[in-house]
Design a protein around this nucleic acid. Structure first.
Length: 896
RNA sequence: GGGCGAGUAACUCAGCUGGUUUAGAGUGCUUCCCUUACAAGGAAGAGGUCACAGGUUCGAAUCCUGUCUCGCCCACCA
């Protein structure tokens, strides 16, 4: 047989194999195939991204699924791609041009976008290349990008449909504003982090009473965490039931510093227990206050510019950054004796998920999608089980979010993205700045939403038309991913064949951003769920439990790991340590698991190849000549097939990995392969050796695609064939053999016991020992005699005698396997006392079990209520132990 | 404030519907072995009141309740 190289070198193998797969077009899926389809779509990584361990885990899981299904005979499609990551990419390019001393406004919109596209072409494919290195069997011919023509068309189509249905509107609301990116963010894009902030107590004087000295009557104390927003205060609110403030009803307050008059309003939503029970009302800078403002008909005063500096309303503070203004205002208040105190106050503060700047709640005109109507059906399909989450606990998280869904802010004040397809006639609408135009419903004269550029106003005939300057949230294109990558809105063959897709594999962080919205969009625009199963894997963390991130410098670079140990080892390791949905704690040593296993597989295959003769491999296995080990390994493999398949079906990937590890390493290599050395020339042995290896390689292929393919290609009979296109093994009931399983297990125990004795008595490796077996049954006698060569070889001993009621030889020690007694005469080497001690301690140990079983069996309730088979089992066990104890006692007698 | 997850061997973790588990694996540790597949290996071994307290049950690491510790997510108490 052809040979594998002595050393396993993943670097060479992996590059070569991947190239071969690509060249042969094996990843391409046929959309006219009559086979059942199986489809997954990649969670599109951000174009600015580089492969991190999260991706490695995510893509390995998906690749396992897709390779497994492909082998099961499905027409398997895995659609890859990237999203344009509006804010992140724009930030990257802005940073790049900043090095040349240019800002984006210097370049202008068109020129800047050209730069971004150039960047995308040059650098935006990094992650795609890296995914290939991992072995991902994506259909690269179908690679998509959210700004592609097709996907852009889908985005536009969806916007227009929703707009015309009145599900998209533009209006004034408090949104999360990132002063660094200078754009609005959705609620999900503002990450809340616990911060040790301050709560500041400030006096707001009561008008006309400033000169009085009486405490509590000449001012109200207000508590705030953001004093700078007081510049935009329009009222102070208290609870109507709060006795402290009842007497002040009808009074007017004076806003410190700016000296604006403020109403004192009474509202039940104010919590008397917080701070002083008095709330400063700043409708333009706080969501709660905004609601109050509407309810009490208060004006909105916006005091900040888009970059977070104070605007002209702030008078002397104009131009100061919000945090500088905070300090300055506090100083001024102190000077005016209007500042009372500050106290530590822990609270959650929103941060921009792209640049981590503290976001500012800010009143702003933005585009929104009404989500409640979309959520309805998305809730039903999950409730009815049409879409299932794995692990199931995420169902609740999803439903909870869905049921409390809020409108989605989809406009971003950046340039990189899908521009909002809305045009305004400035003449009809009489607005200087189109941002200020409110669009609360479709069909407003002078507001046009359309696919192509609109140049002329059909209302007034004028051409003073301007397109909305904003772009859409990146997720507004990502949420269409399952339909748009398959060709929607066109009725393509891909869409017909592969939609709905089967599984979505993703991380928990993205359930709201993406999973939930895809379900809504699929139902809305395709009238069907986008996928059936959602597998949520854990977050990859470092050994201390911190999420791996570049800025923290605690990353383990998957590509470095691949360099060192290979992609197969990386894949195996990460899968084996990821139990369903649990977070993954990584450290470099963990990759040894996969490295060692790959090495084992390689060397075992090498051994098999070395011992095979091609002329022995023709025809089937001769069933009449099967050894115990043959039957055993075949039965064991059979159950492995079953278990691995079951594990994959239930998304228990780590189970699949460890079942294979255990079978290949501990059953196949440790025992079968060792046994085979004694019958290496037998045709049967060679055939079974190869058959089981081939089956194992197939089962292992989804997890370790490269090494399995490489070995497969070296099997002469498989020359020119691909393991990745092989058929997934199916369990064959005819191979199950309980008797062989039990027999082999006993044999293994016998050999182990003999080795054990050798080690225990410190018998030199080269010293020969003899074993005599005392058996109780004919079966046991046959078992030993039939397999005596193995006992000799692996127990490193001579088998002198096997018979019933054998008398214990003098000066011997005993090993016990069930009812079999093995005696090893050691002559002068043993001290009788020591052996008696050893046996006695064993008796004690067993006595404990007998006693506990006794207790159990004498318990009437147990005997009556427990299933019959369990009672019987326990009885058998007890008998067994009692027998063993009896044997051991006899042995002590014999030694004396 | 709500929700979720975790606490099992020195370390990192499995253990799915309670009984074939006398609680497993990998790493580490001890002893022996470079035996022609593999020292990235082989053989043998030590090591655990399954966080704590109750409860359900004939039977609990597993189910229920509570407590403690850690981690995460959600939430407009300024």
């Amino acid at each position: 047989m052809s040979e594998l190289s002595t050393k396993y070198d993943p670097k060479i193998i992996e590059n070569e194999i991947y190239g071969k797969w690509l060249a042969a077009g094996l990843f391409k899926a046929d959309n006219t195939s009559k086979k059942h389809s199986y489809c997954i779509v990649i969670p599109p990584p951000n174009v600015t991204g580089v492969l991190h361990m999260g991706h490695a885990l995510n893509n390995t899981l998906q690749d396992i699924l897709i390779r497994w299904k492909r082998m099961q005979g499905f027409e398997a499609l895995w659609v890859p791609g990237t999203d344009h990551a509006g804010i992140a990419t724009q930030n990257v390019v802005e940073r790049e041009i900043a090095k040349e001393g240019i800002k984006r406004h210097d370049l202008g919109r068109d020129k800047f976008l050209e730069r971004v596209w150039t960047w995308k072409e040059d650098r935006g494919n990094t992650i795609i290349h890296q995914l290939k290195r991992l072995g991902s069997s994506c259909d690269w011919s179908r690679t998509r990008f959210t700004m592609d023509e097709g996907l852009s068309k889908a985005v536009k189509e969806v916007f227009l449909r929703l707009f015309n249905e009145g599900l998209i509107y533009k209006g004034d609301y408090i949104i999360n504003w990132c002063p660094r990116c200078e754009t609005a963010l959705s609620d999900e894009e503002a990450e809340h982090r616990d911060m040790n902030g301050m709560l500041y107590y400030i006096k707001y004087p009561v008008k006309g009473r400033e000169k009085r000295d009486k405490e509590n009557e000449d001012y109200i104390v207000v508590a705030t965490t953001r004093p700078e927003t007081m510049l935009g205060d329009v009222a102070v609110a208290v609870n109507p039931k709060d006795p402290r403030y009842v007497s002040l009803k009808g009074e007017t307050l004076i806003l410190p510093i700016l000296n604006r008059e403020l109403k004192l309003i009474f509202d039940e939503n104010v919590d008397p227990a917080f701070g002083t029970g008095a709330l400063k009302v700043t409708p333009a800078h706080d969501p709660t206050d905004f609601e109050l403002g509407i309810k009490h008909n208060l004006p909105n005063i916006n005091v900040m510019n888009s970059d977070g500096t104070i605007n002209e309303i702030g008078e002397d503070y104009e131009g100061l950054d919000r945090f500088e203004a905070r300090e300055a205002i506090i100083e001024d208040l102190k000077e005016r004796k209007l500042f009372i105190k500050s106290e530590a106050h822990a609270h959650a503060v929103g941060h921009c998920y792209r640049c981590h700047t503290v976001v500012e709640p800010r009143l702003s005109k933005q585009w929104f999608v009404r989500m409640k109507p979309l959520a309805k059906e998305a809730i039903e399909v999950v409730r009815e089980g049409k879409i299932k989450f794995y692990p199931d606990r995420w169902t609740k998280v999803y439903l909870n979010w869905m049921e409390n869904i809020r409108d989605w802010c989809i406009s971003r004040q950046i340039w990189w993205g899908h521009r909002i397809p809305v045009w305004y006639c400035k003449d009809c609408l009489k607005f200087k700045n189109v941002r200020d135009i409110e669009v609360d419903k479709p069909g407003i004269p002078g507001v046009y939403a359309g696919e192509g550029t609109i140049k002329k106003c059909s209302s007034c005939g004028g051409n003073n038309i301007e397109q909305d300057p904003d772009v859409l949230d990146t997720w507004f294109s990502s949420w269409l991913w399952p339909i748009s990558t398959l060709g929607w809105p066109e009725e393509t063959d891909d869409l017909k064949t592969f939609y709905p897709t089967d599984a979505l594999v993703t991380a928990q962080e993205i359930i709201f951003f993406w999973v939930a919205r895809m379900i809504m969009s699929g139902l809305k625009f395709r009238n069907n769920i986008p996928f059936k199963d959602v597998y949520i894997h854990g977050t990859v963390r470092d050994a201390t439990g911190t999420k791996m991130s570049k800025s923290l410098g605690n990353v383990i670079d998957p590509l470095e790991v691949i360099e060192e140990v290979g992609s197969d080892a990386l894949r195996y390791s990460i899968i084996s340590i990821t139990s369903q949905g649990q977070d993954v704690f990584l450290s470099k040593e963990k990759f040894d698991i996969g490295r060692n296993f790959a090495n084992k597989v390689w060397n075992a295959s090498r051994y098999v190849f070395m011992n095979l003769k091609e002329e022995n491999l023709g025809g089937g296995v001769d069933a009449s000549e099967l050894t115990l080990a043959d039957k055993w390994i075949r039965a064991k493999f059979n159950s492995t097939v079953e278990k691995v398949t079951k594990s994959l079906e239930s998304y228990r990937f780590n189970d699949a990995a460890s079942i294979l590890y255990d079978f290949i390493w501990h059953s196949y290599c440790d025992w079968y392969l060792e046994f085979s050395k004694l019958t290496a020339s037998s045709k049967n042995t060679q055939k079974i050796l190869l058959n089981v290896l081939m089956g194992s390689l197939k089962l292992l292929h989804p997890i370790m695609p490269f090494i399995t393919e490489e070995i497969w290609q070296k099997i002469p009979a498989k020359k020119g064939e691909w393991i990745m296109l092989e058929t997934w093994p199916v369990a064959d009931e005819g191979l199950n053999d309980q008797k062989a399983m039990d027999g082999m297990e006993k044999l293994i125990k016998i050999i182990t016991s003999i080795r054990n004795i050798r080690a225990f008595w410190n018998i030199p490796v080269k010293a020969e020992i003899e074993v005599l077996f005392d058996v109780k049954t004919e079966e046991d006698r046959a078992l030993i005699e039939d397999n005596v060569v193995y006992i000799k070889q692996f127990g490193r001993c001579k088998v002198k005698e096997v018979k019933k009621a054998l008398k214990r030889p003098e000066q011997s020690v005993a090993a016990l396997v069930d009812e079999i007694r093995a005696y090893i005469p050691l002559g002068e080497m043993i001290d009788v006392e020591g052996e008696i001690k050893r046996i006695s301690s064993k008796i004690e140990e067993m006595d404990k079990f007998v006693k506990s079983l006794d207790k159990k069996l004498s318990n009437k309730s147990f005997v009556e209520k427990a299933p019959q088979e369990i009672v019987e089992k326990e009885e058998d066990r007890k008998k067994n132990y009692e027998n063993q104890i009896k044997n051991l006692r006899d042995n002590i007698e014999a030694l004396k």
